[in-house]
């Protein structure tokens, strides 16, 4: 009946997960604050409340994400690449390739049957190819990110967008909107641009079956479907828990192995 916890403080959101015997009993996602320790505390408090346990009951907590060094209550900090791999493995047990798209970065990993990283790559360009890219574009279109994801299905002639720079892509979207091009075609163009960037990373690690996608962008069906077409592989989006929690889940699992 050991309780473990994982806390993933990212650039846009902070996530905390409480696990008991390999099952999630509490989780919380909050918007990141200016100080990572505050975000961590908020997320953890929410997760503890949901799990109806106290921090003292938790045997070990592992921290990850950009703010990991600042989290006060963790026993150890672990790179989010390792945590996301473990988390994805827990979410989709057959996963051998993990594509994780977070708010400000994107990573692709190949993992073994234990969820250990064999090969990984992360984006090192600007926001294009990250969750932020979709946020910005959805805002320009005046729709939610979820709606943006659904636009691909209704597109007839997706537009070509500047995909290497978020600012330029934004200018393109505005231009297309002003010239009366259907929102569905613009939306699909955005999802394609995003998928293109991610596909380069996924192919760079030589994606193998099963391909699993985690992170907030996994909820965007337009991107997932386009990416599947580009890779020529089916992509599994976790149903077991929110794909955004992968890093925190992995951290909680690693906490159990300490």
């Amino acid at each position: 009946m050991t309780l473990t916890a994982g806390c993933d403080v990212g650039s846009l959101t902070a996530k905390a997960v409480i696990m008991r015997d390999g099952r999630i009993i509490g989780a919380q996602v909050v918007k990141s604050r200016a100080k990572p320790e505050i975000s961590a505390k908020e997320a953890m408090a929410g997760a503890l409340t949901a799990a109806r346990v106290a921090l003292e009951d938790v045997a070990a907590c592992v921290g990850t994400g950009y703010g990991r060094e600042k989290i006060p209550f963790v026993k150890e900090v672990v790179s989010e690449i390792a945590c996301h791999a473990k988390g994805a493995k827990w979410l989709v047990s057959s996963a051998r390739t993990v594509i994780d798209i977070g708010g400000q970065d994107c990573k692709a990993m190949r993992i073994d049957e234990h969820g250990e990283v064999i090969k990984f790559i992360t984006n090192d360009k600007c926001a294009s190819g990250t969750g932020r890219f979709l946020d910005v574009m959805a805002r320009v279109l005046g729709i939610s990110v979820d709606e943006l994801g659904r636009l691909s299905a209704g597109a007839k002639q997706p537009v070509t967008l500047a995909s290497t720079c978020t600012v330029w892509a934004q200018a393109d979207v505005i231009k297309y909107l002003n010239s009366g091009i259907a929102v569905a075609d613009i939306g699909a163009g955005i999802n394609i641009a995003m998928a293109n960037r991610v596909a380069i990373l996924a192919n760079s690690v030589k994606a193998e079956h099963d391909v699993c996608m985690t992170g907030g962008v996994a909820k965007n069906n337009g991107v997932v479907q386009t990416l599947a077409q580009l890779l020529g592989r089916r992509i599994t989006v976790p149903r077991k828990a929110d794909p955004q929690l992968a890093g925190a889940i992995g951290a909680a699992i690693i906490a159990g192995q300490l």
Partner: peptide, 9 residues
């Protein structure tokens, strides 16, 4: 490569 800057822009 039109994806760097679209022709429209």
């Amino acid at each position: 490569d039109d994806r760097v800057e679209s022709w429209a822009a």
